[in-house]
Design a binder for these strands. Structure first.
Lengths: 193, 193
DNA sequence: TATTATACTGTATTTTTATACAGTAGTCAA
DNA sequence: TTGACTACTGTATAAAAATACAGTATAATA
């Protein structure tokens, strides 16, 4: 993660505070007025920098749609790298990033797996698959799709113009479906113990 | 606090989910499209009702500036139950709760698994184990512990006053450790795809 | 039975907001 | 000393989004 200039840090801080105080994102105009810029482009440029450096994301042309990537409310599960034997282990130490950060959770839902049609891909009955919508899907990816009014999880394979769902268990058959019945790409598997 | 009609409740619920999924408020247009209203005024009227009844506030003429007065704390990944085959599936439908709600994330960290010592428990190299600190541990639970300055994941077994870590792979040996080297209980396994 | 609230359609207009593009000026590093 | 990055000015335009106003139909309430 790249460092911020002091001006960029001020602007990020303003956005952070604004969201906390108001419950919604500031508009670029709000930022412009607060900092006294005479041009809206000053804000545009600063936001671009913050986005490029990975501190912020926004939706193009959408009003008040800024999203902080590292909100101080700190969602997510920290992944520990090295663990000091000294103890006690502090989550704050040696973090190697976060699972399920706000960014990762965007456009994501989960389905509970029934049956063993994906057991050879190590997805078992009772597991949850984590599905991300609106992402590119390639042959060999695991996808969630609707088949006969039910959600199902299978390998994705496109052959010419046809789309097939292929189970990871030889006792089940492949089926052909229409592409718009694909719900999304399976980006993770979670098993609760 | 006044009661909501079912339609109003649906709209409030949509706003709630939208903010959680996207990090910013929906526009009235977003709401209109989701519910299939042909007139923007349908949204205006519903929002007015929700505001009058005290469930919502908004700033006049500001885009995406809805604020929930009673935000339900359940952050996380919504688990979908039934899925309607007819329309594009929206995360907002039929949630059966959340994975990784704020409550579930308390005192939780993750470790990346190296090696295949737990493969018979379906925990593989590269998986993440989700570890909860300060919870009761019983025989047969999977735990994370520090062994020789490294984090490791094994079955837990207490025999009389001794604590053993038992791998789920017969080619590895059990080891005895001191109880205070246990980091926590493994409550989940996540595999990123 | 008149009144009020819900739940919308439909069109038009205004306001807000974001973006595009053309510049200026300073700093810092190669 | 050229080029890249930061930090803006200034004007213009496009787009997104909210609002205004005139209706319709139905069910519940007094």
């Amino acid at each position: 993660m790249k460092g911020l200039t002091s001006r960029q840090a001020e602007i990020l801080e303003f956005i952070n505070r604004f969201i906390k105080n108001n419950g919604y994102s500031p508009s670029m105009e709000d930022i412009r007025i607060f900092f006294g810029f005479r041009s809206p482009n000053a804000v545009t440029c600063h936001l671009r920098s913050l986005i490029n450096k990975g501190y912020l994301s926004k939706e193009i042309s959408k009003a008040r749609a800024l999203r902080l990537k590292f909100s101080s409310s700190g969602y997510g599960i920290p992944v520990l790298g090295k663990i000091a034997a000294g103890r006690p282990v502090l989550i704050e130490d040696f973090s190697e990033g976060f699972l399920f950060s706000q960014e990762e959770m965007k456009g994501v839902f989960a389905l509970k797996v029934k049956g063993d049609s994906m057991k050879d891909a190590h997805i078992y009955d009772g597991d949850y698959v984590i599905v991300k919508k609106n992402v590119d899907i390639n042959n060999g990816d695991i996808v969630a799709a609707i088949v006969e009014e039910e959600a199902t999880v299978k390998y994705f394979r496109r052959i010419k113009n046809k789309v097939f769902l292929i189970p990871a268990n030889p006792s089940y058959k492949s089926i052909e479906i229409k592409e718009n019945f694909i719900l999304g790409k399976v980006t993770g598997v979670l098993r609760k113990l």
